[in-house]
């Protein structure tokens, strides 16, 4: 793979995808730090010839099915307990506009 160019524009784009607004000062600080990590560490893997199957977990695990049973869960009132007063209304969570 061609060497990735870690620029201010790339980091700004990635941050936007991750829903982070970075200030100019943050960008100035992060770009060289992230560049160092990607080029001096992450890119080391370029030289490894790895044809092995990926290990998405460190050991082997398999899917386990469970019965589709109704179990006791939290109440609506409890579910709302951690929402701020402003962000609940009539027993529902309130969120920002989607459209």
């Amino acid at each position: 793979m061609a060497k990735v160019e870690v620029t201010k524009e790339l980091i700004a784009k990635v941050a936007k995808n991750a829903r982070l607004n970075l200030t100019d000062a943050e960008l100035e600080k992060f770009v060289p730090q992230i560049k160092e990590i990607i080029l001096d560490s992450f890119s080391l893997l370029d030289e490894v010839d790895a044809k092995e199957e990926p290990s998405f977990q460190p050991g082997s695990i398999s899917n386990r099915m469970r019965k589709d049973e109704v179990k006791k869960s939290i109440t609506q009132e409890e579910a709302l307990k951690n929402a701020s007063q402003k962000l609940r209304e009539n027993g529902y969570f309130k969120g920002p506009k989607v459209l």
């Binding site: 893997l45 490894v48 790895a50 092995e52 199957e53 990926p54 290990s55 460190p58």
Partner: peptide, 8 residues
């Protein structure tokens, strides 16, 4: 790639 290297 990292996941494959992990196997190694």
């Amino acid at each position: 790639k990292a996941m494959r290297v992990r196997t190694k």
